[in-house]
Amino acid sequence: MSDKTPVTHDLSQLFEKIKEVRMAMLTTTDEHGSLHSRPMATIQPGKDQALYFFTDSESAKVYEIRKDSQVNLNYSDPGSNVYVSVSGKANAYRDQAQIDELWSEPMRGWFPKGKDDPRINILKVTIDKAEYWDSPSSLLSQAYAYVRAVVTGERSKDDDVNEHAQVQPK
């Protein structure tokens, strides 16, 4: 294993890793101080170092975020061996122009009244830091790691077959 995890300030690789995953587990702190997680569909990895979601203005997560804006998002794609953890500050607000811009018809499943539903809020998570792990899922990469371990008696190093980095936006 590497002694030190590489750090980057470039969010583009992070956004590339999660663009196909779409679903994240959003963790907030509830009124009792316990962690509370639920799935959320990512609408747009941000052009402004943020991730965007739609939420109901009367949901528990909006209440929890108003009490404590620190949240965590976890993305997982076991089929591709991609795992991402994002920590940041969340803010729920209503901006009809931005709702119109981000709206897609499948969202009607959660908001049957459409994009003009007065209960739609945008949930913006501004990224403080993130970390990702991406292990090639190909049989060839796994075989390489196995053979290297057998021949050398050492486990694979992160940079041999895995990609792991911390992301800290400027």
Rank of each mutant, 00 (worst) to 15 (best):
L35T: 12
V82Y: 04
T42I: 02
N121V: 06
V86D: 02
D116G: 13
H164Q: 03
E163G: 02
S137H: 09
H32A: 14
L26G: 00
E31N: 14
K47W: 01
L51M: 14
E64T: 08
Y146V: 13
F111V: 13
L26A: 00
V7Y: 03
D128L: 09
K67R: 15
G153N: 05
Y93C: 05
T27M: 11
D159M: 04
D158S: 15
R22Q: 11
I99G: 12
A130N: 02
K67P: 01
D134V: 01
K19P: 04
D77Q: 07
P78D: 11
V150C: 05
E163M: 02
E16Q: 14
K61H: 02
T8M: 00
S137G: 15
P106S: 11
R66E: 15
T29G: 08
M40H: 02
E105I: 07
V21S: 12
I120T: 11
I43Y: 05
I18F: 08
E163S: 12
D116N: 13
S34N: 13
K113C: 09
G114A: 03
L139C: 04
H32Y: 06
P118Y: 04
F54N: 12
K4W: 03
H164K: 02
Q98H: 07
P136T: 09
H164W: 00
N72D: 09
Q49L: 01
S135Q: 10
P39L: 01
I65Q: 11
I18E: 13
S138E: 13
F111T: 12
D117N: 14
K124L: 09
M40K: 02
N72F: 00
S87A: 12
A97F: 03
N162D: 15
K67M: 13
M1A: 15
A97R: 07
Q96L: 03
Y75D: 15
S37P: 07
M1Y: 06
F111W: 07
E154G: 06
S12G: 08
A24T: 00
Q70M: 12
E105C: 02
E105N: 10
K129Y: 07
S137N: 14
E31I: 12
G33F: 05
M107E: 14
D48A: 14
K89Y: 04
M23T: 13
N121C: 15
A97S: 14
N91P: 00
V62G: 10
S34W: 05
K67G: 09
D134K: 07
D95A: 02
S57P: 03
D68V: 07
D77N: 12
V150R: 08
P136L: 08
S57F: 02
I127W: 01
T152E: 12
E31W: 01
